[in-house]
């Protein structure tokens, strides 16, 4: 639906980000007025309380998380590891996300190099073409692929490659966005210097360009990974009983009951997302991540 406008410039080394210059003199009032502060904390509660509840439900010693809570235990964590459908789904989602990440990063980086190196009339159109899967609602995209697989008879319906293709379509745009932004800041003269010193095009790219745009590529890869890992809409029509990603498995179980092992799976998913975002914040300046724009 949207294009994430990302700035993949290097994270500031000194941490001295001063948006509006330095203020002089003592501050007589807080930077944010009290009503807005209360609103902000309320929004934080809405944002984070469900996540906290999942963690508590996974560490709860009772059968269900009710009020008052019964105490902490690791029994559901163990139950999750012993034999649960959620462990299989978690491992499958992890595997799927890694495969999707590799394909999307390769396809997306190559396309981004082309988009930033070539100047030709239809360049913006081509860029829009690569971002367009995000405009389509995920469920519509999943349905379109499902119909295409079944009606064309190319043997992809209810298969693993079919599911991977759907995930690549919704993750590659993020890679193209972040890598393009990184390449935009890259000085092509550096690569040209390597070429004029006798390096082949591939060597010059690998030894000069890639190390410099590396953080942008890595950030795009992490985004592809995490978008695939949490993907529900596209998987809805494309997953099968043999290949059930975690979001679908959780949805199927949540329709009937609150399985505490599902909350245990949730804890590990939360950990994965937080680690990914911490990594991203080391790679690119996520404070510039603000601003989501329609393409």
């Amino acid at each position: 639906m949207a294009e994430m406008v990302t700035d993949t410039g290097p994270a500031p080394r000194n941490g001295g980000w001063r948006p509006f210059g330095r203020r002089n003199g003592p501050r007589e009032e807080p930077a944010v007025a009290l009503p807005l502060q209360i609103g902000a904390w309320l929004a934080f509660v809405v944002l984070l309380l469900p996540v906290v509840i999942v963690v508590l439900a996974g560490l709860n010693s009772g059968d269900h998380l009710t009020w008052p809570p019964e105490g902490l235990s690791l029994r559901w964590i163990f139950a999750f590891f012993e034999a649960s459908e959620f462990l299989d789904a978690y491992v499958f989602s992890l595997w799927l996300a890694v495969v999707v990440m590799v394909i999307s990063t390769t396809l997306g980086t190559m396309a981004a190099i082309f988009l930033t190196r070539m100047t030709f009339p239809g360049r913006n159109l081509l860029r829009a073409y690569f971002l367009s899967p995000l405009i389509l609602p995920g469920i519509v995209l999943g349905l379109a692929l499902y119909v295409f697989y079944v009606s064309s008879g190319i043997g992809l319906s209810r298969t693993l490659p079919g599911l991977i293709i759907g995930h690549v379509l919704v993750t590659a745009p993020y890679v193209i966005g972040t890598v393009s932004a990184a390449l935009f800041n890259f000085d092509i003269a550096l690569e040209e210097a390597a070429r004029s010193l006798g390096a082949g095009p591939f060597t010059a790219f690998r030894k000069v360009t890639l190390p410099i745009i590396g953080p942008g590529v890595a950030a795009g890869a992490i985004f592809a990974f995490i978008v695939s890992f949490g993907q529900f809409d596209v998987s809805l029509f494309l997953s099968t009983p043999n290949y059930t990603p975690l979001p679908i498995a959780l949805y199927i179980s949540l329709r009937y009951t609150f399985e505490p092992t599902a909350a245990a799976a949730g804890i590990f998913a939360i950990a994965l997302v937080v680690i990914s975002m911490l990594l991203t914040s080391r790679l690119i300046n996520i404070r510039r991540f603000a601003g989501i724009k329609f393409s």
């Binding site: 980000w17 934080f44 944002l47 984070l48 309380l49 469900p50 996540v51 906290v52 509840i53 999942v54 439900a57 269900h64 998380l65 995490i226 978008v227 890992f229 949490g230 529900f232 975690l246 979001p247 959780l250 949805y251 949540l254 609150f258 599902a262 909350a263 949730g266 998913a269 939360i270 997302v273 937080v274 990914s276 975002m277 911490l278 991203t280 914040s281 996520i286 404070r287 991540f289 603000a290």
Partner: peptide, 26 residues
């Protein structure tokens, strides 16, 4: 500032079904 951004981005990237689990228990 970075800490708040990580919180917002993590909340955004976390699978919605997991957050729904929390909301439904709540």
């Amino acid at each position: 500032n970075t800490f708040y951004m990580i919180l917002v981005l993590s909340a955004m990237q976390l699978d919605m079904v997991i957050r729904l689990f929390g909301l439904m228990v709540l």
